[in-house]
Amino acid sequence: MSHTVLAIGTAAITASGCVWYLPAIADLQAGDDRPRSVRTAAAACVLWWAALALAGGLLLAVPAWQPAAQVALAGLVAGVLLRIRAFAQSRAERREDRLRWAMLDAGPVPRGPRPAAVALVGWLLVGLAVSSLGALSILLAGGGALAPRLAAAAGSAVAVSGAFLLVGLGNARRHRP
């Protein structure tokens, strides 16, 4: 394969890589508005693509393929080293952020003076409303004799009210001082 075909292929790949290196260039131009790890990772990305573009240019200018391969390999190695450095910087930034947020933490939010009985009454009222609406919908659904519908309505009302009572008691016990 001729060097011209390889150079054209490299140029096409480099041009299609703009979805990576153009945002990286924007991150580099942003300067201190971006974290250091983001800028280092962006520099690695730009270095990879610049080395590939330079290798494509060398394929056109130099008759041997070894200089282009050496430039591409050097760009790859330097980019990987920058990427490793960016990862280490990112870990340090996250550790520093966790430390700063921990310094701002004032501990658990103190509970209000609301007694557990008020919460239990709330659960019971909601349970009563839900069970009443369920029983009413069973009774108004129609179809069949009245006695089985009354039994189903009463059974479902007792079951739903009992479930809300159990949830309310668990909540009251958990919020006991």
Rank of each mutant, 00 (worst) to 15 (best):
L128Q: 06
I84S: 14
V126M: 03
A86L: 07
V46C: 04
D32A: 09
A11D: 02
G75D: 05
A15C: 10
S90T: 14
P108H: 09
C45I: 12
G57Q: 02
W101S: 00
R34F: 12
G79L: 04
R94M: 01
A51P: 00
R39V: 03
V118K: 13
L133C: 10
S90W: 15
L73N: 06
P23Q: 11
C45F: 10
V46P: 02
G127N: 13
V118G: 05
A117E: 12
V38G: 04
Q29E: 11
P23L: 11
A119Q: 05
P35N: 02
W20C: 07
A50L: 12
A86P: 00
R83K: 07
A135Y: 03
L59D: 02
R94N: 00
R95I: 02
A61I: 13
C18H: 08
L81M: 14
G107V: 01
A51M: 03
P115A: 05
G79D: 08
A69L: 12
V118N: 06
A64W: 15
W20L: 10
C18E: 14
L58S: 08
V126G: 01
A116Y: 04
E93M: 06
A55F: 07
A69H: 05
L82T: 12
V80W: 14
V118E: 15
Q89Y: 05
W48V: 03
G112E: 11
L6M: 14
A74D: 07
T40I: 07
L128F: 13
A12P: 02
A116E: 10
R36D: 06
A50T: 10
S16D: 13
W123T: 06
D32C: 04
A88T: 07
L76E: 04
S37W: 14
R100G: 01
L99F: 03
D97E: 15
I13R: 12
A61Y: 11
A64S: 15
A61S: 07
L22D: 04
A69W: 11
A69I: 04
A50Y: 07
G134C: 13
A92M: 07
A41G: 12
L104Y: 09
V126Q: 02
A72R: 05
A88D: 11
T14P: 00
V126D: 01
D97W: 09
D97Q: 11
W20I: 09
L104F: 07
A51N: 01
P108G: 12
L22E: 04
A24E: 05
S37Y: 14
L73G: 05
P63G: 12
V5G: 09
E96F: 00
